[in-house]
Design a protein around this nucleic acid. Structure first.
Length: 846
DNA sequence: GATAAATAGTTTTTT
DNA sequence: ACTATTTATC
């Protein structure tokens, strides 16, 4: 979000009168001019059609790498160029703010001036923008707070505690997930209660939690992420006249990543593209809203034209309520819709695409789509089976160095993984090898406690009724206000129908000690003083700020600095002896710097705009293309991005597909799509790696190769270290069916526990690192014996002597662990003390 | 009310 | 393994 929310006039008052949207009977308004437009240069016939088509509804099925962003951008530019739309009549919805910024930039680059007034933003940003304008209509303050999942969790925790609902098995997480799911279906506590089985005490309890949660948010004038969509839909349904203003304004709606829309988003799109009835249009005209040239023969305003772009094979957000039926049912929802299929891929080599096609082909119930490339086969996919997560990280790090030495920039490489927890091992190794990297997403800046503290001060100023923010800062920094005082204030507020903030001002009535009372009053005064700084000096008689900006009012950074010095938050961290507080102080200073940047970029932006921007940043938003670092991210974050070289790590059962997806209906299929998304991010080089063992919850688990690896034709993968024939339980099932069997590929053990590394389980042999990619396979084949390494039920006890393939002879001091995780603590005669996983270590009893 | 020690829960993905 | 939260003690 780079444009301030309040930077433009409301649609109702827009004075654009000429409204060049009208189509001829074919949906084309004179194609001659468009045919020659440079906008179509370099596009294939399908892409051209997607840019040129004019009609009510257009579905673009865009396979991965099929130039979808370019088509969407050019389509927007084309709408403007052919005068089918004014900029202000276009609403383009993207998945991330970064994608929105990119699109805005590209449209601007094509057209120069004239793209102002377009709304290009995410679902959530657009909804916030609408809701801030119309807040009073649905009983909200226009400065409403936006609760993130952590805020939701804290709120639910208090509710569950108050209800003793944990005895029914409710946790903030479980209740929150259920509430979110319901809100995505546009349900509320009441509508849920009507259909719930109220003879089930657990259901009764859940309804009560849901009710209280909704009530608390309302009292705090706060909305959670799901509310942003749901409340906008509610606004449009409950206030047809409000809806009509937006339907009148947005004549062209474009939605990217349509396969990942949930029901609430689907409903929102539907509300925005409905026609305005003749009666309502007449009413608008009578009210002085300019609608005449939009009205058709019956006097109604036809629904806006809708373009959606998506690919059901890349739907990976079902857990968040995404429903691919939105895309598969598009032609039913919008009769007469045009469907365009983009199958030519401009991103990846044919080898990568063939692998992707093979994998996704295993999903049934999909319309077959085959990506193809004119760019040649390219290099083979590289496979690698590591001994441990660390070993895998070492492989990734080594290969990154090889690629870099061969001339590839760090910024063109990315490492993907299924879970954020996998970053730890990768980071450790990358730091050690001095590889510049950056973790995209993960623990985000704005989620750090000290940043949330500082932001809570700002929120408390912007939205004084937000109890959550106030309670967060009540004793931060420490001012001697403990939990007893906090709950005392809270119930004092409830009993006297005051807001928490009012209770603070009246805290003298609580009969607390003079010290505590003084501290509370001082904080309340500080917040009041900060609020005064924001009151604009130049206002009209009826209190409306002149010029739509806070002329004369303090800007965000001034308010923040005032609050920081007034509260002592920064000073306390600076003077602390805890070394971590130094980092925290730096983070807060970084936040101050960000507010200054914000002031510069958004001269008209106010405190609320800043807080909104902060609330809605997505993981991929902080990706800096010019950073010159390797990017690390989850497969989910990777969607929509592309890199020269991609390392897809942790391709193991239990991780990809993830354990937790096994019970979910459609889980394995969604995990397969996730794998597919990861594969199709790669332009030239793709590395698939897995680890035989992986540390989790502090102990080591044996992992099997992912079932999805078997779905890739064997001749597409060049296994540098094959999963081979090693068995995990001494059986005869191959670990991966597509493993190369020629050339003597074999088990893990012998080849993997070469040099002994700091993890104590033996490290990977180094012989394959540092070699240029694409060396003949025989290099490895010769070094790996065909023996299968599996010690099965080898029994060892303290005192046994063993012989290790690399470390020589040693004595077992101790055996710990159970089953496949049994670990021998061995004192080697020459190699020192090692811990070995008995099952797979290259050892024998002597 | 603040510190230290013990314990529980965490890791699926995110706007 | 790590962190966050709760509990014991001063």
């Amino acid at each position: 979000m780079t444009t301030p929310l309040n930077a433009e006039s409301a649609p109702a008052t827009s004075n654009r009168s000429a409204t060049p949207i009208i189509l001829d009977s074919n949906g084309y308004a004179g194609t001659g001019e468009r045919e020659q437009s440079p906008l179509l240069d370099g596009l294939n016939p399908q892409q051209k059609e997607a840019v040129k088509y004019r009609g009510q509804a257009l579905l673009i099925i865009a396979g991965a790498g099929s130039g979808k962003t370019s088509v969407l951008t050019r389509r927007v530019a084309s709408l403007l160029e052919t005068r089918d739309a004014w900029p202000s009549q276009i609403l383009a919805i993207t998945f991330t703010n970064k994608a929105a910024a990119e699109m805005r930039e590209r449209v601007h680059a094509i057209l120069g001036q004239g793209s102002d007034g377009m709304w290009i933003s995410t679902f959530h940003s657009s909804c916030v923008r609408i809701l801030r304008r119309e807040a009073e209509k649905i009983g909200l303050s226009s400065t409403f707070s936006i609760y993130d999942s952590a805020d939701t969790k804290v709120t639910l925790k208090r509710i569950i505690k108050g209800l003793d609902a944990d005895t029914y098995g409710f946790t903030p997480g479980s209740a929150g997930a259920k509430i979110s799911k319901l809100k995505n279906e546009l349900a509320d506590a009441d509508s849920y209660a009507r259909n719930a089985n109220m003879s089930d005490p657990q259901e009764v309890m859940f309804v009560e939690i849901f009710r209280q949660y909704s009530a608390r948010l309302r009292a705090a004038s706060a909305l959670d992420f799901d509310d942003l969509i749901g409340e906008t839909v509610y606004l449009f349904r409950a206030f047809p006249k409000v809806a009509a203003l937006y339907r009148r304004r947005f004549r062209h709606l474009l939605v990217d990543e349509y396969q990942d829309t949930n029901h609430a988003q689907y409903a929102l799109v539907h509300e925005l593209t409905r026609p305005v009835t003749a009666e309502l249009a007449q009413e608008m005209e009578d009210d002085g809203v300019h609608v005449r040239n939009l009205r058709d023969a019956t006097g109604a305003i036809p629904g806006a034209s809708l373009t959606v772009v998506g690919d059901s094979d890349q739907s990976i957000y079902a857990f968040r309520g995404a429903d691919t039926r939105n895309i598969s049912g598009f032609e039913r929802d919008y009769p007469g819709a045009k469907v365009i299929l983009l199958e030519q891929n401009y991103r990846s080599t044919q080898n990568i695409l063939s692998a992707a096609n093979a994998v996704i082909g295993h999903n049934f119930d999909r319309t077959d789509k085959k990506l193809w490339s004119a760019g040649g086969d390219g290099e083979k996919i590289v496979g690698f089976t590591a001994y441990s997560g660390h070993d895998e990280a070492q492989f990734v790090s080594d290969e990154i160095q090889v690629l870099h030495a061969a001339g590839m920039a760090y910024r063109d490489m990315a490492v993907f993984y299924r879970t954020n927890a996998q970053t730890r091992a990768l980071e450790e190794i990358l730091v050690r090898s001095a590889t510049p990297y950056r973790v995209v997403g993960g623990t985000k800046f704005y989620e750090r406690a000290e940043i949330k503290d500082a932001l809570a001060y700002l929120i408390a100023v912007a939205n004084p009724v937000d109890e959550l923010a106030l309670r967060r800062i009540l004793n931060t920094p420490k001012r001697g206000i403990g939990p007893a005082t906090e709950t005392g204030l809270s119930s004092f507020a409830d009993d006297n129908e005051l807001t928490f903030r009012q209770a603070m001002r009246n805290s003298a009535a609580l009969g607390l000690g003079p010290k505590v009372t003084g501290a509370i009053l001082k904080l309340a005064e500080l917040l009041d003083a900060a609020a005064l700084m924001l009151v604009p000096t130049s206002v009209t008689d009826d209190g409306v700020p002149v010029g739509g900006s806070n002329d004369g009012a303090a800007n965000v950074s001034e308010v923040l600095e005032f609050l920081l010095s007034g509260s002592g938050l920064l000073a306390v961290l600076r003077n602390s002896r805890d070394p971590q507080d130094e980092v925290r102080a730096e983070n807060i200073e970084e936040l101050v710097a960000q507010t200054k940047d914000f002031n510069k970029e958004n001269p008209d932006g106010g405190l609320v705009d800043f807080l909104t921007q902060v609330s809605l940043v997505a993981a991929a938003d902080d990706l800096d293309d010019a950073s010159g670092t390797v990017s690390l991210m989850t497969l989910h974050t990777a969607k929509g991005l592309e890199y020269e070289a991609v390392f897809l790590t942790g391709v193991e059962e239990g991780l990809l597909p993830h354990q937790m997806s096994a019970n979910e209906p459609g889980g394995p299929a969604e995990e397969r799509r996730l794998f597919y998304v990861g594969i199709t991010r790669a332009r030239k080089r793709l590395y698939l790696s897995l680890a035989m063992t992986r540390a989790q919850f502090g102990d080591i688990n044996v992992a099997m190769p992912s079932r999805y690896l078997q779905e890739i034709p064997a001749d597409l993968i060049d296994w540098k270290q094959s999963p081979g024939m090693a068995n995990s339980r001494g059986g005869t099932q191959p670990r991966a069916l597509n493993a190369r069997r020629d050339g003597g590929f074999g088990g893990f053990g012998n080849s993997l526990s070469g040099s002994g590394s700091s993890d104590g389980f033996g490290g990977r042999s180094r012989q394959q690192t540092g070699l240029p990619p694409g060396k003949p396979k025989t290099e490895w084949a010769n070094k790996i014996t065909g023996t299968v390494r599996d010690n099965g039920s080898l029994e060892l006890t303290a005192g046994d002597r063993i012989r290790h393939h690399d470390f020589g002879e040693g004595r077992v001091n101790q055996v710990t662990g159970e089953g496949t995780k049994r670990i021998a603590h061995v004192q080697f005669d020459t190699a020192g003390a090692k811990k070995l996983l008995i099952k797979i270590a290259p050892i024998e009893k002597i």
